[in-house]
Design a protein around this nucleic acid. Structure first.
Lengths: 324, 324
DNA sequence: GATTGTATGTCAATCGATTGACATATGTCA
DNA sequence: TGACATATGTCAATCGATTGACATACAATC
């Protein structure tokens, strides 16, 4: 690949001049500028960003760690983050932790070696301490760790809305699928809020924990079998993701339960898939795009030394469709 | 951040020695090695990969351009690519073209500036000529461009299998949703094969084009309305993605058509979502993981100057579920 | 004719790490 | 005692681009 020296030589000017053209500094005549651009085109010259990064101490790279992009929620979130990163001149380094702590740790180190400008953590399999000592521009999604800025949606409110709706609809025995409560994540608030509300009304409920691992669909199937096996009289379900909700729908069909007449189902996230399935899923909408935008913004602000808000809790919204 | 000089100074050795420890070259006593490692840990030192890349002329970055990762097919493909890239010591630079030629062009340039070691092109909105002149390690997904190596699955066979199944099941009037036939992609072979087979049998069929844009769900809805409006007697559908198939299912429910009794539906890809929806979708399975593995492998081989196969067409498979 | 603005060049340092050439110590073995 | 393996150091170049200091033109303007 051509270097700035090749361009200078071929254009018959000095490297300084080429650099001046490239960076728009100092005096440059229109004629020279044209000549330089022409030569760059002829040589198919592209300035080496690696060399630039080294000097500027800025890579223009943002690292993103998620469990895996093939989970619809993280896929859509990644899309949003990529979109806003691009608009701010950043490129995205993508890592799937697969919820494996070793891989997550490894990825963080790797990103530091590559001097990414900041890391957005959407996967949280490590102990709080490990993140705390990172000493790097960081943004956390859905997890609060000391002073690290985070972006989340109002999980408590989400759980509340879900409970309210199922109560209103007259459900008497409700199942709740939540995530892994051992992982210290803000999404656990959904469960607290939900259980609180339901308990207030003296309604019976069962809580089942699961992981966010789409690949292991058999785990979901096992859970469904277990639930409907021991509690065939469930008449309401609050699932912590639309994907889980669609598994519930599938089992209800199998068991010939009518939705929403016999059983009401409410999901979470409002990913695109929630409206592909039928009946379309009633769900709690997270503002995915805005979450992505904010995450990128927070990295940028940390880099530029601008003041920023550490706690970013965005509103959620009930989207009522056909499963309630 | 600490540099190799800081480490050398603090450990009381020369940078050459630190470098020797780091790269395992020349003679190093066990004592010095330990001392250096200790110091690196104390200083939280991470070798600057940017500086290394500059010297080695290797970034260990692979660029991936897809329409968008929130489309389940590309999400799963990205997952696979990321997995195999990681195993080979590469990191993944992710770009969503959003099917916008300007953005795609821009991204390619950006990746060249960043000196990624190779680019995997899963989005193809540009003219053939633009790719041809790229002069860069490249792998194309689902598109054949001169000598550029590509990875695809057997689209022709996929179309054939779909046609065969619907014929066997006795469908008499079939709708086929295909992608944008203007984009010169190998997936168009599905349509050719399908139409050929159906025509052979003298069966009536309608072909409808669409884009792979999951965001514009309204376009899908419009298409469905159009199809079922003018051809309510359709009794078979071959959709070029499982997502489109799930929209078909949704409309069938709305129109109270029984699946598979009144209408049989077959999708394409076999993404995870195909088995979330109910009834679970009969589909043509693409070997997504193997496609990802091969793409990364082909980049690596081009870098290392190893011989490689240019044409990589992987077998597809009919997965029969509940919609046929 | 002096001043000033414009245009370009030369030179060298810098970013952080790698590497080859060469020097200089030890320690060990024959 | 000499040869050799081991261990470490010094020095300088290199990767590709940026940048500041300074020099040198030429033109226009007062």
């Amino acid at each position: 690949m051509a270097t700035i020296n090749d361009v200078a030589e071929r254009a018959g000017v000095s490297v300084t001049t080429v650099s001046r053209v490239l960076n728009n500094r100092g005096y440059i005549s229109e004629k020279t500028r044209r000549k330089v651009y022409e030569t760059m085109a002829e040589l198919n010259y592209q300035p080496n960003e690696i060399a630039r990064s080294l000097l500027r101490k800025q890579s223009n790279l943002i690292g993103l760690i998620v469990p895996n992009v093939s989970h619809p929620f993280f896929g859509e979130l990644t899309d949003a983050i990529e979109y806003y990163a691009y608009r701010q001149g950043f490129k995205l380094l993508l890592c799937n932790s697969q919820l494996d702590p070793a891989k997550e740790r490894d990825y963080i180190e790797m990103m530091k070696r590559h001097r990414v400008d900041g890391i957005i953590m959407g996967s949280h399999t490590l102990e709080v301490g490990e993140y705390r000592n990172l000493n790097y521009p960081l943004v956390t999604l859905d997890r609060r760790i000391d002073a690290i800025p985070y972006v989340a949606s109002d999980n408590y409110r989400g759980g509340e809305l879900a409970a309210q709706l199922l109560i209103e609809k007259g459900c008497r025995k409700i199942a709740h699928f939540c995530g892994n409560l051992q992982l210290d994540m803000l999404s656990n608030d959904r469960t607290s809020a939900f259980e609180e509300k339901i308990r207030e009304q003296g309604i019976e409920f069962i809580t089942l924990q699961t992981d966010m691992n789409v690949f292991d669909q058999r785990e979901y199937e096992r859970l469904m079998a277990k639930l409907f096996g021991s509690h065939p009289d469930i008449d309401g379900v609050f699932a912590t993701s639309d994907i889980i909700a669609s598994f519930v729908i599938k089992w209800c069909r199998k068991l010939e339960k009518r939705i929403p007449e016999d059983i009401r189902i409410i999901g979470y996230d409002d990913v695109n898939a929630a409206s592909w399935v039928s009946p379309a899923i009633t769900t709690i909408k997270q503002p995915i795009e805005e979450m992505g935008r904010l995450a990128v913004e927070l990295i940028r602000k940390q880099m530029d030394g601008e003041p920023y808000e550490s706690e970013n809790v965005l509103p959620v919204e009930l989207v009522e469709r056909a499963t309630t």
